[in-house]
Write a protein that binds this DNA or RNA. Structure first.
Lengths: 189, 189
DNA sequence: GCCGCTGACTACTGCCATTAGCTTTTGGGC
DNA sequence: GCCCAAAAGCTAATGGCAGTAGTCAGCGGC
């Protein structure tokens, strides 16, 4: 029997492909095994189980998003950077809805997730630099951006917007709203 | 063998309790059967299967939210009504995180869900009445409110906010931001 | 050329959803 | 009060899945 030459990375690659093609519910060890041309129990040589595979997949997705967004923000600043970031977020979820759904929301239960999440946070904080936000203010602002981007994108990906009104328009409205609050209030002097 | 006197409603009740107590992943027919004191296959006399049970559960939750929010909005209007609605949304998700996670985002694939969803939409539209928003504008505004409430609440429930900064403050900031955009722009006369 | 490590396999268990077919309770018509 | 049909429950069985145990074979280091 020829050896398949698998590795943890290859298993995660296959899992990503399965999720992208058939949805997050179809992400089973059996499906990943079939795609890699291996019997199901063989996967346990590379991954501790379905739970760990999900965690690794989540870390991969967060890292991938961080890379995307880093490229997006490069060479931009201020409103331009934040708007680009928000649209990149939505675009990513539209392009890979299943992958996004596979991403755990809480990165704290695993160091690998926390590291990838930190990278993502840094990108956002860099985009906010132009506003002079620091410390807690920057955290609150980041949370607002994330809540808006995640909320809109997950609803869109989940088919939560049934009416025919233009979604681009809704999102533009939402993005400009949240950006407006980042600017310091007009100084009354 | 004494008859258990089950009904579709009772099965959904039990499913709701299972989800609330043990999380949405623990919502299995086996668990619901045990809770109702019945063998698993007996449930098929009342629901078509796990899929239908999930749909019925979703409809129940949406209806429940609509009832909650209707009571919340009664006797309020304008910014007061919208702010109360937004906080009621977050409070509901905090109180019943698993139940909320069990709610499908797209109500269109089932008539019962669509009906419950329509009721929910009506409550929001009523709260927006004071702003003079009509037609598409009202739809866009509703979507913005939903994206913000859903985004923040699902992140909070999912443990997505790891840092110690006060969440109430973030949400207040977000709510007042989104409310500000509902008001007509200051007339330049 | 040999040996041990590692990756892969087969066989098995247990849980779950679902189906089929049987039994018993219940309630309505007489 | 009795009978019967429908409804509600049951047991048994199937197939898919995750995960475990134990076995075998290829490959690298010597």
């Amino acid at each position: 029997m020829p050896r398949a030459g698998l590795s943890t990375t290859a298993v995660v690659d296959a899992a990503l492909a399965v999720a992208d093609e058939h949805g997050v519910d179809a992400l089973t060890l059996a499906a990943v095994a079939q795609r890699t041309g291996v019997a199901t129990p063989s996967l346990y040589k590379h991954v501790a189980g379905l739970g760990e595979l999900r965690t690794l997949l989540g870390a991969r997705v967060i890292g991938d998003m961080a890379d995307h967004f880093t490229r997006t923000v490069l060479g931009r600043s201020g409103d331009d950077a934040v708007a680009a970031l928000m649209h990149a977020y939505r675009d990513y979820v539209r392009q890979y809805p299943a992958r996004y759904a596979a991403m755990p929301l809480d990165p704290l239960h695993d160091p690998a997730l926390a590291a990838a999440g930190g990278k993502l946070l840094d990108v956002v904080l860099a985009a906010l630099r132009a506003y002079g936000l620091a410390g807690s203010d920057a955290i609150h602002a980041t949370r607002c951006l994330r809540a808006v981007a995640h909320g809109f994108s997950s609803l869109e990906a989940g088919g939560g917007f049934g009416l025919p009104e233009d979604l681009d328009q809704t999102y533009d409205q939402l993005v400009s709203t949240v950006i407006a609050t980042l600017r310091p209030p007009p100084r009354p002097e």
